[in-house]
Design a protein around this nucleic acid. Structure first.
Lengths: 257, 257
DNA sequence: CGGGACTTTGAGCAAATTCAACCATTGTGG
DNA sequence: CCACAATGGTTGAATTTGCTCAAAGTCCCG
């Protein structure tokens, strides 16, 4: 089973993007050119007419990030919104003592931010190199008044996010560690397929700590539980950044999906 | 401190509404008359012009429920959507083995359902007697295309719901029992205030089991933790359906809000 | 006054966490 | 070029938090 791992795995050269937490954007003012956007079909812009797309194009700019860059920060005044074109982003909230809850992972086609919220409800951090389409919030809000399909599209997208959040509440409130991991692996596989990848490898570009903070567990429990799933021949573990779902059916039963 | 308890506490006469899980609606086809709706300021309809309100009025009907009635059911095709006028509703999802996660409690002004979802993502059940405004889903979707403010309003409302869901994910994933209860009590107090109630009593019309299923705990832990908060003089417990937050500031610190 | 549902309290248990050590990979500097 | 430090991951032992099971208490009705 050779090179069928999605390019999520590629990490940036370290040292180039490591920092003190300061935001670190490589932003080109190169026009975004929505028309040939790779994520268009999945995105906000998917259903727009050529004419409206051009208007969207005018208020958008291309943005690139390396791992650990922050796209938006919890509690800050929301200036920009993003549409992810490629790469993986994690969203999280923090408690004052440092406990962290990752509320979601976003990939190609997903939307970051909420047009009507003056302040960001979460931090969005690049897990892998990320390319995205950046909008100024006021511009987008104005455009939403003018291009009806836009608001519609956004509403649908937020609806999906809300449904996912409710599913995750079920996981966090009522599932045990094994069920959480099974659910997570299936979720990752589904995301990957939605993004157009095929092949049996499921990429896990995020760290064990990230997985733990998403599932409401500790890294140790994540590690132990993955090992247990491997011993039960439900998965193969390929290094730390990919797995193979050997028995997806059984995993789905465990996940209680 | 006399009668300052919100009417949420009143329970229906038992026997009248107890059932096998079957839906049990008392629905009047009496016109809803949005114009004098008590929940209008908080609701979907809040910002509409008189003219649009009339159009909304035409696709809406008044609905009443007693405790344990189901307004919508998880997995069913979504026919109706609701706007709660009074009373308390719980939303939940079930796992096949009966484990339950309550994803939210809704009160005056809150919206139930999602216009673009063909199938309900959750069950909505009346906790107390509930009055609401009922919309046919296709009607509302059509109207959303015609009355621009409506979609806007709904988007804002879903955004709030999503923010609350993410907050709850933090609670479920990373807070301990004491922190969960403190958060919950403050949340209930805030809901009550938002609904226009004043006074120091916080009504808890839902059962301990409901609270447990909302907080990802068991009834026993809820009970024990409330007792502990009482012993620490942070709350008074008034029967099973109300508490007083004696030291709200401290509770907020515990809740890590 | 009695029955039933719900809540509280108690004791023992189990799942997941904490703390600690070890391992693997990778990049750095001698 | 290789030793070694640093980072992230895995494994183990002890601890803890919250759960399970059991029993008693309370409240609200009739």
């Amino acid at each position: 089973m050779p090179a069928d791992i999605p390019d999520l795995r590629t990490r940036p050269t370290p040292g180039s993007g490591e920092g003190t937490g300061a935001e670190r954007r490589r932003t080109g003012r190169t026009g975004p050119d929505c028309v040939k956007c790779e994520a268009r079909a999945l995105s906000l812009c998917g259903a727009l007419r050529e004419e409206d797309l051009t208007r969207l194009d005018r208020v958008a700019s291309q943005a690139e990030f390396v791992a650990h860059d922050l796209l938006v920060e919890e509690g800050e005044v929301a200036i920009h919104l993003f549409n992810v074109s490629s790469g993986l982003v994690k969203l999280y909230k923090l408690l004052s003592d440092g406990r962290r809850q990752i509320t979601g992972f976003l990939g190609k086609g997903d939307f970051i931010g909420f047009p009507f919220a003056r302040v960001n409800a979460y931090t969005a951090e690049a897990v892998t190199p990320v390319r995205g389409c950046r909008f100024s919030r006021p511009d987008l809000v104005r455009l939403m008044g003018e291009v009806p399909g836009l608001e519609h599209r956004l509403l649908a997208s937020i609806g999906d996010t809300l449904a996912a959040a409710q599913e995750q509440m079920m996981l966090l409130g009522r599932k045990n560690a094994r069920e959480r991991l099974a659910s997570f692996l299936i979720l990752q596989a589904a995301r990957q397929e939605r993004g157009g990848y095929v092949g049996e490898r499921v990429a896990l570009p995020m760290s064990r700590t990230d997985i733990a903070d998403f599932l409401g567990l500790t890294t140790e429990t994540v590690s132990r539980t993955l090992t247990q799933l491997r011993k039960d021949r439900l998965i193969d573990i390929l290094g730390t950044e990919a797995v193979v779902l050997r028995d997806r059916e059984q995993l789905e039963i465990i996940a209680q999906a």
